[in-house]
């Protein structure tokens, strides 16, 4: 037996295995990519889809994604209660969350909330996730990184 190559008499079998495996792998990938899996496995609904579902959305666990509408955030730290409106640009849903929002949370940012619809038309959630875009920008507010570090240090000990 040669040390650099496996038994040459089995080479034909190995090549058959190769072709069959490649075909299986390619069809699996094709199915995942073009098999409309996305229609059945949706990570979150937008506001339109939530509205379409109507009463079915009440009581079932749903992820809802959209943008926090400017000027609608009401955060009451003493009650750990957060209210805001999620919009997709045309339609809106009021959202109530318990617990402190992540530090990235702000008006105009994308969010995904996990929770359910209530009969009153408000979405209640206990899990609020901030969706960051693929844009990485330098700060624009004129404060340099050093100045901000200084500010951070002064706030740190509070």
């Amino acid at each position: 037996m040669s040390a650099t190559t496996a038994n040459p008499s089995a080479q034909g079998t190995r090549r058959v295995f190769l072709v069959v495996t490649l075909l299986v792998a390619a069809s699996a990938l094709g199915f995942i990519a073009f098999g409309n899996m996305g229609e059945n496995l949706v990570y979150y609904w937008d506001v339109g889809q939530l509205r379409e579902a109507g009463d079915k959305a009440i009581g079932s666990t749903i992820r809802l994604g959209g943008v926090v509408k400017e000027g609608t955030v009401d955060w009451r730290p003493d009650e750990s209660h957060l209210e805001f409106i999620i919009t997709d640009g045309s339609q809106e849903v009021p959202v109530e969350c318990s617990g402190a929002p992540p530090q990235m949370f702000r008006e105009g940012i994308g969010v995904v909330v996990e929770g359910t619809m209530t009969p009153s038309g408000t979405f209640t959630s206990e899990r609020l996730m901030v969706k960051h875009s693929n844009e990485y920008k330098a700060p624009e507010d004129g404060m340099s990184a050093d100045e901000r570090k200084q500010l951070y240090r002064t706030v740190e000990d509070l």
Binding site: L22, V24, A33, K131
Partner: peptide, 25 residues
């Protein structure tokens, strides 16, 4: 070869499906 099928899925997944993770930078 079978395990590799997931590599393009990880890479293109953010284009194919909605996700919390951002798209390509």
């Amino acid at each position: 070869i079978v395990a590799f099928v997931d590599v393009p899925v990880v890479y293109f997944g953010v284009k194919w499906w909605r996700s919390l993770h951002q798209e390509w930078s």
